[in-house]
Simulated scan of single mutants.
Amino acid sequence: MPETITPDKLWQFSLQLYPQVKPLCLQWQDELGANVNLLLLLCYLERQQRSLSAAELQQLAAQLNNFSAQFTKPLRALRKNTAIAAITPAQQQSLKQALLQAELTLEQLEQQLLLQHCPPLSKQASPLLELYLAQLKADNNADSAMLAAQIIDLRQTYQRLNQHGG
């Protein structure tokens, strides 16, 4: 039976998986407008053999995008622009670290919001990553074959976590 999904379990899973898939997640974030926290949740759900319908996934993504657009994205942009601040390099580094810490807090909050707004899950495996990326791809001109290969790589990475007790 699949385990209960708690914010802490999702966060711990994310901390394990993200460093290994960071370039791919950031590529999808930049090129497709993907939300990394939603990607991580979908990986977790697939690993648990739980699923959402396409409509539920779209609604969940929309709710998260509102919060992210209001808080997470502006803070991320601010952090990325610390180099242009008229302050010393040490001050820039200190500012960047403080903003990064605040951004991590917002990322964790995004995951909590995802779980709060997540509809009841069905107990069947379904290709959630394909569903989400197809929704994003509709707005972008992404290469389907390349996305399919990247999804396979991502799945293999989180399956290796399973094998190593993650």
Rank of each mutant, 00 (worst) to 15 (best):
S122Q: 12
L147R: 02
E130H: 14
A77T: 14
I151Q: 02
L57T: 00
L109F: 10
S122H: 12
L129P: 11
R155V: 04
L60H: 09
A148F: 04
R155P: 06
P127C: 11
T82C: 15
A148Y: 09
Q48Y: 00
K80A: 14
L52I: 09
A83P: 04
Q159N: 07
I152K: 14
A134T: 15
A55S: 13
N66T: 12
I84N: 02
R160A: 15
L109Y: 13
Q156S: 08
L154W: 02
T157C: 15
L115N: 15
A142H: 05
S68I: 03
T82W: 03
T105N: 03
K123F: 06
Q59K: 11
I87S: 02
L147M: 14
N141H: 12
A98Q: 14
L109N: 01
Q112W: 11
E103Q: 13
S68M: 02
Q97K: 02
A138F: 02
Q101R: 14
I87G: 05
E107R: 04
Q150Y: 14
D153G: 11
Q91R: 06
C43W: 12
L109W: 09
Q49P: 00
S68R: 05
Q49T: 02
L45S: 00
L78F: 10
S51C: 13
L115R: 12
P119A: 11
T157W: 10
L104N: 09
Q70G: 07
L78I: 10
P89N: 13
A77F: 08
I87L: 14
A55R: 12
Y44E: 09
S94L: 11
A86S: 14
T82A: 10
E107G: 08
R47C: 03
H164V: 08
Q97L: 14
Y158Q: 01
N66R: 11
Q49I: 06
L57N: 02
E103W: 13
T157G: 07
S122K: 07
I152C: 13
T72I: 05
L113I: 11
L154S: 09
R79L: 03
L121G: 09
S94P: 07
F67W: 09
F71T: 12
R76G: 02
P74W: 00
I87E: 01
A62M: 09
N141F: 08
A134Y: 04
M146G: 01
E56S: 14
L161Q: 03
A142P: 07
E46H: 10
L75D: 10
N141G: 09
R50L: 15
Q159R: 11
S53P: 02
L100R: 05
Q92E: 10
F71D: 11
K80P: 07
Q91D: 08
L129E: 00
I152R: 12
E46S: 04
L147K: 10
L45Y: 08
Y44I: 13
I152D: 12
E130M: 04
C43I: 07
D143W: 00
C118H: 05
L104R: 01
A142N: 02
L161T: 07
F71I: 04
S51G: 15
Q163D: 13
H164R: 15
F67Q: 02
L128M: 01
L75K: 01
Y44W: 15
A138W: 04
E110N: 09
A54D: 15
S51F: 09
A134K: 07
A125G: 04
